[in-house]
């Protein structure tokens, strides 16, 4: 393999990453070539290590190095409340809150027949088993507020409600600190219909 194709291979691999196009991949590749060996080696090692060590939690589906994950093992967490999210990265968003004290369940996607994703491809069976095996009292469904996320939430509620467990959906509305005039009309109308007495 000559230099040309080695560099080409790196550029190809980099451009497979989300949000990185051909141009950016080239820039990154030439940056790595120019910088000291440590930069490239550090990055390569970090990538290899993360793929070796990080696994999905067998209970909630979160990304973790130990199994079950830190959140599932934490005795201070309230196991009666389970927040259902689409992706592990959604857990990170919730964890930044520091106020949510329940546990999570990652679906690994949403129902979308156009993408060939049905309920059987998601971690729904695991959720139902988990509910049966533990003393769950409330399920909070936090899928994205779009057509697919809503339909998935509706579907889950139909499965879980007969088990006599309360099912809630996170509210959608205006971003805090945002300007009302910049909100899109659907957000504004949802915020209006979900208004609360003061």
């Amino acid at each position: 393999m000559n230099e040309q194709s080695t560099i080409q291979r790196l550029i190809n691999e980099l451009s497979k990453l989300p949000g990185i196009g051909r141009k950016t991949a080239e820039r990154l590749a030439f940056y790595l070539l120019k910088e000291s060996d440590n930069v490239g080696r550090g990055l390569a090692e970090a990538i290899l290590e993360v793929k070796q060590k990080v696994k999905f939690c067998s209970v909630c589906g979160n990304l973790t190095e130990g199994d079950p994950c830190g959140i599932c093992c934490d005795p201070r967490r309230n196991r009666k409340i389970v927040c259902v999210v689409e992706e592990p990265k959604d857990i990170w968003a919730f964890e930044k809150l520091r106020t949510y004290n329940g546990v999570y369940h990652v679906l690994m996607g949403v129902i979308s027949p156009l993408d060939g994703v049905g309920p059987e491809k998601l971690r729904i069976k695991e959720l139902l088993k988990r509910i049966e095996a533990s003393e769950t009292e409330e399920i909070i469904i936090a899928t994205d507020p779009n057509v697919e996320g809503d339909a998935t939430a509706l579907y889950l509620s139909k499965l879980i409600k007969p088990l006599d467990i309360s099912v809630t959906r996170i509210a959608s509305g205006l971003p805090v600190g945002g300007d009302l005039e910049y909100a899109d009309s659907v957000t504004l109308s949802k915020a209006l219909s979900g208004r609360r007495p003061l």
């Binding site: 049905g118 057509v147 509706l154 139909k158």
Partner: peptide, 10 residues
């Protein structure tokens, strides 16, 4: 049927 109903609701 549950899934079909969910799409119908949307």
């Amino acid at each position: 049927y549950n899934l079909l109903k969910s799409w119908n609701e949307k």
